[in-house]
């Protein structure tokens, strides 16, 4: 059974009258990866700072690797925590190699380990250049490299993909996958839900300091009330009950569990059928708007219609649907 590396229970943080986060419960297991999603100012960075002990909770408890991060004992625990801050900054007059060497020594690691990490993030050729000459993406890579120092058991990454090119973004998620296989827990904050698909096993949506949703992507899709759409393209003919969105193109909504049965029932000569699942950004927007039912194209067509047979002789070609009066 995997152990919790990070646990937050009923955490709130207030700055005077302003409530930054409230009533947050969150746990992260060994090898797990949680995506913390919210718009700018939603409270993501505040939560990460609470986990690092940079802020004290106004209410609730925070435990990271079994320690209170604001306590004296947390200093040792921080050897096993990697952190990449939002808009990471380094001293501009130091070279990349000097910077990673400094942080490596702070974690009781040999500077050679720092150089290996620079190579891993593709900065080995720029290692002798001053950080002041680095692009935003290069600084982000350097920030990611320092977060990997010390073989961390918990990685807290605040907006880690900002400024990364698509090629390195893939490599970044590859490195994260390797770390997770080795048992590292990863908390990844982002305001772009779409890029987290496939990289995280759970998503927590934060809005105005409150947790709106917590679950895997399929659960969030279901919670958002967004139903996948099926799009059928026909050479000619009509589909009763389907919505025509273009000449010969029809759409209907279909709940995820019914899609397979629905597709099996479609005739071979029906033309092409596409499944249009709600994009993650739509899911995120729907969660922010609050719970609503059936955000798809009206009531679920898969519940009301069942394709019974291919088009028979004399009938118009295409899909034939029979409405079921339930």
């Amino acid at each position: 059974m995997s152990l919790a590396t990070i646990e937050l229970a009923g955490v709130a943080k207030r700055f005077g009258a302003q409530v930054a986060v409230q009533g947050i419960d969150l746990s992260l297991q060994e090898g797990g990866c949680v995506g913390l999603v919210g718009h700018n100012g939603a409270g993501k960075s505040t939560l990460i700072k609470l986990m690092l002990g940079l802020l004290r909770p106004s209410a609730g408890t925070v435990r990271v690797l079994g320690e209170d991060p604001t306590g004296g004992a947390s200093v040792r625990a921080r050897r096993e925590i990697g952190y990449l801050p939002d808009n990471v900054a380094f001293h501009p007059s130091m070279t990349g190699a000097e910077t990673i060497g400094f942080y490596a020594r702070l974690k009781r690691e040999a500077p050679a380990r720092g150089r290996a990490l620079l190579q891993q993030v593709g900065l080995d050729e720029a290692a002798r250049r001053r950080v002041g000459t680095y692009s935003k993406g290069m600084r982000q890579r350097l920030g990611f490299a320092q977060a990997l120092l010390g073989h961390p058991r918990a990685l807290l990454l605040d907006e880690p993909t900002t400024g990364l090119d698509p090629e390195f973004r893939l490599r970044f998620f590859g490195i994260l996958a390797d770390m997770r296989r080795a048992g590292t827990s990863v908390l990844l904050s982002s305001h772009a839900l779409a890029e987290l698909e496939g990289a995280v096993d759970r998503i927590v949506v934060i809005d105005h300091g409150r947790k709106l949703a917590d679950g895997d992507i399929a659960t969030l899709r279901a919670e958002a009330g967004l139903v996948p759409r099926l799009r059928a393209s026909l050479a000619n003919g009509q589909l009763p009950g389907w919505q025509q969105v273009a000449p010969g193109v029809f759409e209907t909504s279909c709940p995820e569990p019914d899609i397979l049965a629905f597709l099996k029932a479609l005739p071979d000569k029906a033309g092409s059928v596409e499944i249009l699942r709600p994009a993650l950004d739509e899911v995120y927007a729907a969660i922010l708007q609050g719970p609503q039912q059936n955000r798809g194209l009206g009531p679920s067509c898969a519940a009301r219609f069942r394709v019974t047979a291919p088009a028979g002789p004399g009938e118009s070609p295409g899909l034939r649907c029979r409405e079921l009066h339930l």
Partner: peptide, 14 residues
């Protein structure tokens, strides 16, 4: 203000 302090304090340094 530059953002380097938060990173330093995330290291095992009192």
């Amino acid at each position: 203000e530059r953002g380097t302090l938060a990173l330093l304090l995330a290291y095992p340094v009192a």
